[in-house]
Amino acid sequence: MKLSVAFLRSAIAAMAASAVVGIVSAQLPAKDPIPTNSVYQLDVLLENENGDSIELDLFYGNPVLVTMFYTSCPHVCPLLINTIKVMEAKLSAEERARLRVLAISVDPERDTPEALKKTMQLHAVDRDRWTMVRSKPADLRTIAGMFGVRYKKLPDGEFNHSSKIILLDGKGISIAETSKLGKSDPAFLAAIQTALE
């Protein structure tokens, strides 16, 4: 289901990019089937900091750190981003080059692409490897449910949410997570390094 839709989308994109329509589909690299316990089973479109429509599995093939946050969050969210940066700093340049970071907003109504981009600039994250995204509001509980993230919107428009960082392997299987913020969690860092080998 998921594969065929993704395949179709890539095929259409490839067809649009190519004048030689007849041979295009044969040239597309075939993806392995997605494991049943992979979060990439979820067929959902997200919007990134550039306003582009992307799929959840855009980093397929690379280990990914995933977190859920919102840009106007005063305390925990900057700490989440900093924690990821602290752990990245402990990796070698080669390791770091393979790692990707996906930060998903729990506040899609306010976290416009502009707000997401501003946050990325503010925290000076590597925009080649990081992306910040929002979902359609109707998809948010499903995405959060898949990552085991609990959240609640408060009457003043703020959010409380689980503050955790999840490590996905190249196929989108969750292999480790941490809720230790502000410093590097040694066991989690080791899991990242193993995944990057």
Partner: peptide, 21 residues
């Protein structure tokens, strides 16, 4: 919204939501 039920209404500091879980 079953995942929002026990998320605290007043603690935005680190760990608040997770501890409540």
């Amino acid at each position: 919204d079953f995942t929002g039920l026990l998320v605290s209404g007043d603690n935005r500091e680190q760990g608040g939501a997770d501890q409540l879980q």
